[in-house]
Simulated assay, not measured.
Amino acid sequence: MGTLVHYATDKGVAFLTLTDPPVNAYTYEMFKELDAAILEARFDDDVHVIVLTGHGEKYFCAGANINMLREADESFKYYFCLHANETLCRLEQTPKLVIAALNGHAVGGGLEVALACDLRVARTGPFLVGLPEVNLGVLPGTGGTQRLARLIGRSKAIEMMAEGQNVPFEEGVRLGIINKYWECTKIEDFRRKVDEYAHEFTPPHKAAFAVGRIKRSVQSGLEMSLLEGLAFERELQAELFASSDAKEGLTAYTAKRKPSFKAR
């Protein structure tokens, strides 16, 4: 699709690759392409899962391009942060499972991008995750203060960000930042594993329509009161009960056979 975000699809999975070697740092231009790619995947009825990863073997994303920030005026930087927030919220609210495949370091804004995804998977290597923006005299301004605290708890998130910690992937697993950590030293093996994992959530194996609504119920529901969240959950459930996949799932269960879902 673009030069900074490569877009490709394969059997129900859209692969979005941040591409600006050597560290895949993002600019306003990259986020415009990312925004467009998210919408492309959202509107494509044949796409059920989105995988977001980085180009190369060392960096998922090193965050915002420092040279761009140093040279831009305050007005541009404000609108840059606003657009980044809007783009990542669009990713977070898209009713399709989003997996961040951490092929390398995910620090600063790179981790903030990954935090807007539903699941984060990573590979073996001397790689780090963290939000060290305090070392630049600023805070994590692309959702990091909000999403990290919601994910790992307030006190631990403040500790990580105030100390400017970057921690190894193994520690990221322990903290709950990373969901899966695979023993893949070769990037080719990791990408194959990611591909296999993403396709587990596509038809006919999985009811992707239901997976997308589970994601929406959690991502939006946790920002509501419990009663509002329960009401939202009921509406999504009603939508699912009316789907072909629900009828297939219930029929297959009764007939003691494996269901064949169509995401419809």
Rank of each mutant, 00 (worst) to 15 (best):
F232Q: 13
R150E: 15
S243G: 10
A64C: 04
V49N: 08
N24E: 05
L226E: 08
T251N: 12
A41C: 09
G56A: 13
I187D: 11
A101P: 07
S225W: 00
R123L: 09
R123G: 00
G54M: 03
P21G: 03
M224E: 15
R123D: 02
G212V: 07
R264T: 02
S260Q: 13
A100Y: 06
Y253F: 14
D73F: 07
K58Q: 12
T145K: 12
A246T: 13
A263T: 08
G164L: 03
Q219K: 14
T185Y: 10
S217H: 05
L227Y: 00
Q219M: 13
A62Y: 11
L88N: 08
Y197M: 15
R213W: 06
L97K: 12
L226C: 06
A36H: 01
H205M: 07
H48E: 05
R147H: 09
N85R: 13
E33S: 10
T94N: 10
A25H: 05
L91T: 03
I152V: 15
R150C: 11
A25S: 15
H55S: 09
L236N: 04
G137E: 03
S244K: 12
S225M: 01
H205F: 06
L227I: 15
I177K: 12
Y253N: 07
L69F: 01
A116R: 01
G108S: 11
I50F: 11
L227C: 05
Q93T: 05
E71L: 10
L151D: 01
N67L: 07
